[in-house]
Design a protein around this nucleic acid. Structure first.
Lengths: 201, 201
DNA sequence: GACACGACATACCGATCGGTATGTAATGAC
DNA sequence: GTCATTACATACCGATCGGTATGTCGTGTC
C-alpha cells in the first residue's frame, strides 16, 4: 500500500462494480465479487462509497452516463449535420459497440429493467440518462427539420422516443437470441425507419 | 389441511412466484416471499418444484408463455386477416394490457434481460417464447403478402424481428419513465411503422 | 518529530438465503 | 383396517450477504 492513489482506488472500484453489475445485475452483484477483481478490500470500498446503493448510483452517472455521452450524445450535439450523424452512428454500430454488448446487453437498459420499479433513486438517475438520450435525438431531428433534411410533418418528440425504445429493444432481443446477426438485421430496420423520416434526396 | 388439492396448491405457488419474480426479478425473488402470499410452506413448494430454478422455468412456460399465447400469438394464428389483427392488437393495447404493465414492465422482457446471460436453461425457455412471437408475426406478414395487404418487397423476417424488439423496447422505456402517455405515444409509432408495411388502401 | 486526518485492511456481526431432513397426516389400493 | 405413497409442515443447516468496528499506516501540516 505504498503511494496511495485514492482517485485510482475509487476508479478501480467503480470499474469493477460496473463489470459485475453488467454481468449479473445490481441486486445479484456482490461486494465480495466486485472486490475480487481489484485486490482491494471492503475498507477501501466503504471509505469511498457509503453503501452498495451509492456505488450503483455512481456507476450510472460516472460510468454508464459518461460512456453513452461519448459514444452517442456528444457526437450528435456537436454535429453540424445531426441526422446524418445519427444515421451514421446506427449504420456503424457494429464497429464501435463494446465487445460484450450482445452477450450482456446494454448496461443502461439492464439497470432500467431491473431497478426502476424497486429503487426511486436508481429510477431517477436512469431517467436522467434516458431523458438526455431522448432529448438529444429529438433535438437532432428538429435541427434536421430546420436544415430541410427531416420531413416537416414528422413529430420529432414521438419519433425520438420510438427510436430510443426500438434501439434498446434491438439490443435486448439480440441479447436473448445471442445473435450478432439478429442485432445487425434489427438495427438495419431502425436505420431504415430513421431514414424514412428524412426528405428523399 | 383437509381436502388436499395438489393441482391447486401447485397453481398457487406458480402464481405467487410469477408475481414475486415480476416485482423484483428472479434472482432477488425469495422463496420465503413467494410463500408469504400463499399460506403454504417450503415443504409444499419443494414437493412440487425441486429447485428455485425449476420454479422459475415453470413460470416462463406455464404462466408467461401461456399469457402471451392467449393475448397475442393465438389471435394472430387464428385470424383470417392477420395483419389487420396485428394492427388492432397494437392499437388497443391500452385496453387489454395488465394493469401493472407500466410499473413492472413485460415479464418476458424482464426475465430475458436478467437471466439470459446467466442461466442457459432460462435462456433456452425464454428463447422458445420469443421465437414463437417472432415467427407468429413473420407468418402474419407473409400471409398478409399472400392476401395483398402487405407490400411484396417487405422483408417479413426482418420486420417481424424489429416489431418484437420495438414492442419490448416501448414497454421497457415506458417502465422507466413510469409514463402511460409515453407508452401510448411509442406504441402509436409502432402502429404507424407496421401500417407503413401495408399496401395503401 | 508530533499530530490529525485520510486511506485503506481485517475480523466480526446479525440477517437472510436456498435447500435438507424429519415428521405428520391425507389418500388410495388392497 | 393395513400399508405405501403423496402432499404437505416444521425445524434445522451451512453459506453468503451488506455492513460495522477496530486497527494500521501513509500523508500533510505545523
Amino acid at each position: 500500500m505504498d503511494n496511495r492513489k485514492p482517485d485510482l482506488t475509487r476508479r478501480q472500484i467503480l470499474d469493477a462494480a460496473f463489470c459485475e453489475i453488467h454481468r449479473c445485475g445490481f441486486q445479484a452483484a456482490s461486494i465480495a465479487n466486485i472486490l475480487a477483481d481489484t485486490k482491494l478490500t471492503k475498507g477501501a470500498l466503504y471509505h469511498h462509497f457509503p453503501t452498495k446503493q451509492a456505488l450503483g448510483l455512481a456507476v450510472i452517472d460516472e460510468v454508464i452516463g459518461e460512456r453513452l455521452d461519448g459514444l452517442i450524445f456528444k457526437p450528435l450535439r456537436e454535429s453540424e449535420r445531426p441526422v446524418e450523424t445519427l444515421l451514421e452512428i446506427i449504420a456503424t454500430i457494429d464497429d464501435w459497440r463494446p465487445a460484450n454488448f450482445i452477450d450482456l446487453g446494454c448496461p443502461l437498459n439492464n439497470l432500467m429493467q431491473e431497478m426502476s420499479p424497486l429503487d426511486e433513486a436508481f429510477k431517477h438517475r436512469l431517467n436522467a440518462v434516458l431523458t438526455i438520450w431522448k432529448d438529444t435525438l429529438e433535438n437532432a431531428l428538429r435541427r434536421g427539420q430546420a436544415q430541410g433534411t427531416v420531413r416537416p410533418e414528422v413529430d420529432c418528440k414521438a419519433v425520438a422516443l420510438f427510436v430510443v425504445s426500438a434501439w434498446e429493444g434491438c439490443i435486448g432481443i439480440a441479447k436473448n437470441l445471442q445473435s450478432p446477426e439478429a442485432f445487425s438485421l434489427c438495427m438495419r430496420q431502425l436505420h431504415d425507419y430513421v431514414r424514412g423520416m428524412t426528405v428523399p434526396t
